[in-house]
Amino acid sequence: MSIRHHLTDQLVMAYAAGELPEAFNLVVATHVSLCDECRARLASFEAVGGAMLESEDVAAMSDDSLAACMDRISGLSQATARRPLKRAGIFPAPLADYIGGGVSKVKWRNLGMGVKQAILPTGKDASARLLYIPGGQAVPDHGHRGLELTLVLQGAFRDETDRFGPGDIEIADEAMQHTPVAEEGEVCICLAATDAPLKFNAIIPRLAQPFLRI
């Protein structure tokens, strides 16, 4: 997979610091699963956290804390250790974990013109959704009232700026005006997240619009 569009340093650092909303965490974790370049960058930002911890002031633990911790450890059963997550087809492990499997497990909702979406259960401060866009169709606009991340998992889309293929991530903010269209051929499947509020009640009247704005 030759990835040309990567995460910004700002997103990688925010993920390393643990400061992203869940929906963005999901997109970052999914991209990093596909992209060694961003995985290495993430490791370097995590090393900053390590250096901070090492040079950290200390807060005294209570006298019996080590003994209490040893008790805790002997109470841990090996069975509680989580099995490593598995990739499911085009879905890297962190995404497959949300879906409970691969593409066939997604509960799509039709938006018309063959376009479908599935909203994923995440915390309320940002939302994540999967998009299914047949070749030649416009990608539904999923935000643009905040920060918007769109990660391609299958197929490709193009907009005024560039082409985005599998593993590529497009990062757009409110200032960006673009009209992404899925390339002819394979259905384009994307994972998208935005911190703009979802406007469910606006979906139906807007469905008739040419670009399927939501």
């Binding site: 643990g18 869940e22 965490n25 974790a29 999914t30 990093v32 699963s33 490593p84 962190p94 949300y98």
Partner: peptide, 22 residues
């Protein structure tokens, strides 16, 4: 640090943190 960060998200933020594939 990564363990502590994840514990913080879990305990203080009560949020879920998807991790990259191992």
């Amino acid at each position: 640090f990564t363990i502590a960060r994840n514990r913080r998200i879990d305990a203080l933020r009560k949020a879920r943190r998807p991790e990259p594939e191992e």
